[in-house]
Design a protein around this nucleic acid. Structure first.
Lengths: 335, 335
DNA sequence: CTGTTAGCGCGTTCAA
DNA sequence: TTGAACGCGCTAACAG
């Protein structure tokens, strides 16, 4: 840590530019509300002095900061990494910064992160999913900023929601398998006790199967997706129904594990067993057979959220309370 | 955006607890420096009133915030997602928050992000790599906080560095192929004009080959890794040297694309051609053949950085200026 | 378009 | 251990 060369502040810039501090402040916020002459003088002083605004002071005075708090289960998850990256790129172009936190699917961690973010009087809060502890909801309902729940659409959002229906995604997976003539279905999931959205897909899957008179078992593995999880789930499913001919996995990582496990066991995909994943990870196209999966639009979610926030914060027009970004089935070799 | 129920502040808590504001402040920062009685009264008031500290006011007064600014090329990249997640988990346990930005390998974007982060008087700044624009370096050198450059070790760090030598990683890849009896080598890279670390691996690769009397061509594709990039690179490499029998890819995504392309062309891996990647992505083990690759330790980098920052900021002891997290070769089927 | 005047909510002296 | 005074650097009226 280097010596503190006392920070140059706005009043120093004002001095150097021969204007008052408030003119500098105004220039910084609305350059066009200041005379050409003052403007160039200020701009000159700013970079001659290497002035860096103190956003804490600004935020304190304005009772609001240009920070957007983002809380996701895990940045290691490509879904959220996509969304947050897309959001960050757009927001930073408008002078907003992203403060982020991982909950690791822990409700208490979520509460702490929300609390921490709110301490910065953010311009907006972005959370993942519609399911939060009552305390968290309370905090957010009383927060003096827009709240966006993402990656899920459903009942009773706190404020705004951007995403899609996981129930529908589950139904779509079932319909796809059924259309392929599959009759003995199962939904295999990893860590669904924590990932409520995966659970909703599972329920949609079973519901759709039921409407067609087919029963679909839902099997959960309590640990995260991995080769071991895939092996365990496949064994379990096969023992419950040896005639199994179609499975949906709660995500592509698990689906890829299933493909791997099938090849180990000599189960032909898709002839003996159809497999459909969820997520359309980069590598879904590279597997053998390539993976049929459901593609959500993580980047679009991020873009829509950024735009929504900008509309609300900068904007005039009314903003939609729910935005459906949809999903599509990407048909490849495995189903 | 809901109605502003005027925020409860520290003085409100003080009032409710029958103590002065500064006692509350003291309690918040060092609970043990306050009498038992005052302590419980304050704690009670805090959660009865739902007090959320205003970190901007606190930071302004203290001239420092518990924010750590993190700047990475892209969160979509699993390397950085791992590192940042690991770092965030540890830091948030100590009351620090992460403010992050993606540069997309753009030096100017990096400068803007650094400037923006510094406006928050962060407790530390974390950047990716050792290569930055002179302006960025200046800003950082004069910054009144520790600076950590990560994912690379080398000459002249700004302050602290946590990572490993990419030159050495490149050498290791070459040694591995040479040890397998490969004699016609090439290093295939995507977007290396921007990813300097990949370029350093390429140089290390060529240097090591040279010491063994083997020449290794370095070929770059200016667009990001993809199936097209892999196809183009393979064609180019084969046309330069039809006898090619060993290649290193700048990352696993590209390596997987190469594997895919080889299988399309009927090139047997590893018999006709050995392939070694970099990164050890989750799916490197699932490909066919599975991918031999170099594993950096992204999560360890994050942990070490978090620890380093905590040591400097909270701590007493002297902190190391460089931490080598190393790498290992994971030998699988492709080489 | 510019300058003046008041705080924003809290940390940090210091004295009691 | 507690409290009073002061100011952190800036924004937001408003008056000129």
């Amino acid at each position: 840590m280097r010596r503190t060369r006392r920070n140059v502040k706005m009043s120093d810039v004002a001095l150097a530019a021969n204007v008052s501090p408030s003119t500098v402040s105004l220039y910084l916020r609305r350059p066009h509300s200041v005379s050409q002459k003052a403007g160039t003088a200020i701009a000159g002083a700013i970079d001659r002095l290497g002035y860096v605004p103190n956003l804490m002071a600004g935020g304190l005075a304005a009772a609001r900061s240009r920070v957007v708090g983002v809380v996701v289960p895990s940045m290691r998850n490509a879904f959220f990494a996509d969304t947050v990256s897309a959001m960050q790129s757009i927001l930073s172009g408008h002078g907003f910064q992203v403060m982020f936190g991982n909950t690791d699917y822990d409700a208490d961690a979520e509460l702490q992160l929300v609390r921490a973010n709110l301490s910065w009087s953010p311009s907006a809060m972005v959370l993942t999913g519609l399911h939060h502890s009552p305390q968290t909801r309370d905090l957010l309902r009383n927060a003096d900023c827009p709240v966006v729940e993402m990656w899920e659409l459903g009942e009773d959002p706190i404020d705004h929601a951007v995403g899609f229906s996981h129930h529908e995604a589950g139904r779509a997976a079932a319909r796809h398998l059924l259309r392929k003539g599959r009759q003995k279905l199962a939904f295999l999931g990893a860590r669904m006790q924590e990932d409520r959205r995966a659970m909703k897909r599972a329920e949609g899957f079973a519901a759709e199967a039921a409407t067609q008179g087919v029963t679909a078992e839902i099997i959960n593995h309590i640990k995260p997706a991995s080769t071991e999880a895939a092996a365990a789930l496949l064994s379990s499913a096969l023992s419950k129904d040896p005639g199994l001919d179609g499975v949906a996995a709660s995500n592509d990582t698990l689906a890829l594990g299933l493909l791997f496990e099938c090849s180990r066991r000599g189960i032909a995909v898709p002839n003996d067993l159809s497999v459909i994943g969820f997520g359309d990870l980069e590598f879904a196209a590279f597997s053998n057979p390539s993976l049929t999966t459901i593609r959500p639009f993580g980047d679009v979610i991020g873009q829509e959220i950024a735009q929504l926030i900008l509309d609300i914060v900068e904007g005039e027009g009314r903003s939609r309370t729910a935005i459906n970004t949809g999903f599509v089935i990407v048909e490849r070799g495995s189903a």
